[in-house]
Simulated assay, not measured.
Amino acid sequence: MKNRRNFWDRTAIIYDRFMRRDAAAYDRMYALLRPVVRDKTVLELAAGTGLIAKHIANAAEYIEVTDASEQMIRQAERENHAENLHFSVQDMFCLPYADKSFDAVIVSNALHIVPQPEKALAEIRRVLKDDGVLIAPTFTHAGNSFSGKVRAFFMKRVGFPLHSKWTSAEYLRFLSQNGWTVRKRAVLKASFPLTYAECVKLEV
Rank of each mutant, 00 (worst) to 15 (best):
Q90G: 00
R5F: 00
V36G: 05
D131V: 12
T195W: 02
L202E: 15
R151Y: 14
R4E: 11
S168T: 14
P115S: 09
D67L: 02
F7D: 02
A142R: 15
L128M: 14
T66C: 03
I13W: 08
R20D: 14
I56P: 00
E64N: 10
A76F: 00
T140D: 04
P117K: 01
T11N: 13
S168L: 08
A76G: 05
V127C: 10
V114T: 09
F139L: 14
K119Q: 14
E203I: 13
Y97H: 13
L85A: 02
R38I: 01
M72S: 01
D67G: 04
A142K: 15
W180K: 03
H55N: 15
A60Y: 09
S145N: 14
T167S: 15
V37H: 09
P161Y: 09
G132Y: 11
K189E: 14
M92W: 05
L121R: 01
H86C: 13
D27S: 10
D27F: 04
N58F: 03
N3D: 12
M29E: 08
L85E: 01
M92F: 06
S168F: 06
V37F: 01
D9E: 08
L162Y: 14
T167C: 07
A12F: 00
D130Q: 15
S69E: 04
E83V: 08
I14H: 09
V105Y: 03
F153V: 06
I106W: 03
N80G: 12
A104K: 09
T138L: 07
A197E: 04
